[in-house]
Every structure is written in structure tokens, then in C-alpha cells.
Amino acid sequence: MKSFLRDVAIVASATFETPSEPSRNEVEMLLPVIHDALGQVGLSQGEIGFTVSGSSDYLQGYTFAFVGALDAVGAWPPIRESHLEMDGAFALAEAVAYLQEGHVDTALVYAFARPSRGDLDRTLSVQLDPYTVAPLWPDARGLAGLQAQAMRDSGRYGDVPDVTPTYVGDGVTAVILATGDRARELTKTPVWIRGIDHRIEAQMLGLRDLGSSASTKLAGEGAGATNIDEAYLHVLYPHQELLVKDALGLDRQPVNTAAGPMMVGGLERLATAAKSIAGTGKRAVATATSGACMQQNLVAVLEGAAA
């Protein structure tokens, strides 16, 4: 595992989730959550060094969804800002790299999604090879079924649960990061990011061993996911918990799983892990997943400094 030039901690976070948001738009959903997270450490947007978000136009149903969402931030005077068309957990990884440079010492990471607007299983088909696979419209749940069956066929997992989706509809998560002394100034209980890594696999299912998660294993090694006390895993279907535990070598540790809203769920896992271990001296692993049958996986190792 590579060491950081500067230690980075999660110092605050806030989340809102609901099966289907009836009345508010993205900006109205984000505003109170961002303000909540900033307020926990007494920061204003003007004091944030770098802002980065994760979202998907295909979930929102129109192009440039992230552009309007920026209205919730108050980007004036102009801010250092970027956006990934990925789960917010990957945006957090980008923020950690950005903070290494030393020009700024705080970052706001947020993610938003309203998949309840459309048919998520069908929408995700558009992620697949546009020439040979997507035209067949294989839905996300069906592909997960192939994964569960491959696990059963491997005989390595005992009982493999059925494919029932657990993802929540709509939501937003905001996380505040800070480096070294700045983190210690902002909170008595910073949660240090000791390692963060992510890896991708080939998309074509025939090229992969669906009965294991090679990318989770590599990312876990890269992030230094050893001596773990608790796990906060991003899994979209119950059978995927077995794959992640296997890849990370988790056995007796308490495991807390959630799917969350697509694009938000991974960042939410990191935020929840941080909240849970803040001030405890414990070491947790948190994961995020993306793509059909867990094609891409992120692993973060967090340590809650003892209060």
C-alpha cells in the first residue's frame, strides 16, 4: 500500500435517503444535506478548498444533471470543482488525491440520484457493450442472477441467497474531508483514511470469474485492508455480500451492508463507516461497487482516532 503525502480524514457527513422523493428537485434535496455536513464542523462553502461530486445523467433522465445540482453549493466566488460520472465514493478518491497537493486542506464530496424517476433495471442495460450486448436489453437483476448462479456452481459459498434488489430509490450524501492538523482543528474525532484503492474488471461476463470478485481483492490489497474491526459493504443484492467478504478475507468481523441509491450508495457506506467508528479507535473497511456483476470496486480503510 502506498503512503499518503498528507493524511486525510472524514470530519463530517450527512445523508438523506427515501424510496421515492415526491416533491423536491436535486437542488432542494442537496441543500439541507450539504448544509448539515458543513455545519457539523462549522465550515461555510467559501472555506472549502475543493468540491467534487458523483452522479449519472442516465439516472436523472437528462444531460448535464450535475450542472444544475451545483446550484446547491453556492459556487461564488468561483470554486475549484470537478465531477465524476461515477458513484460518489470514486469522487472521494479523487478528492483524496487532490488534497495531497497541499494547495488546499478541505474538500466537499457529494453524490445525488433519483433513480425512482425511471426503470433502474432497464436503464442500467445501457451500460453494456453498445454494439453486441445492450441491444438485447439484459436487465441488471438478470445479470446479477448469472452471478449468483456462478457462485452456486462454484460450490464455495454454501447457501447463496436469491437475487432480490435492496437498493433504495433516491438520495444524497455529502462528506467533508480535511487534511492533518486542519482535520484535528475541525473535530475531536477525525476518521482517517488509511488507504483507498479501486480496480476495474473486463465488462464481458465471459471473460470474468463471476464466482469471485478479483477487483475487490486487488483493491483491498492496495488499500491495505487488514486488521479490520468492522465492515461497511456496498452490495446491491444479498449474494454479493458473500463475494466481498471472501475477497477481503472478512470472517468474524461485524458486517453492515447496504445498497443505498445508485451513485450515492458507495459514498454513503464510507460516510456511515466513519460515523460508526468516530472516536472509537477502531479500524473499518468500506466498499463501493459499480457496473454489471460488480465490475468495478473501491475499498477504503478508515481509522477512527480514539476520542
Partner: peptide, 19 residues
């Protein structure tokens, strides 16, 4: 070239202020 029509339906929520 192959043409692959994509049809996805979305509900739209304008939000409290725009409502």
C-alpha cells in the same frame, strides 16, 4: 453502423420552488 433505438421513460419532478 448499427442502429439501436433506446427508449427509456422518466417521470419529472420540478421541485417545490418551480412548482
Amino acid at each position: 453502423i448499427v442502429e439501436t433505438p433506446i427508449h427509456l421513460d422518466y417521470k419529472f419532478t420540478p421541485g417545490v420552488a418551480q412548482s
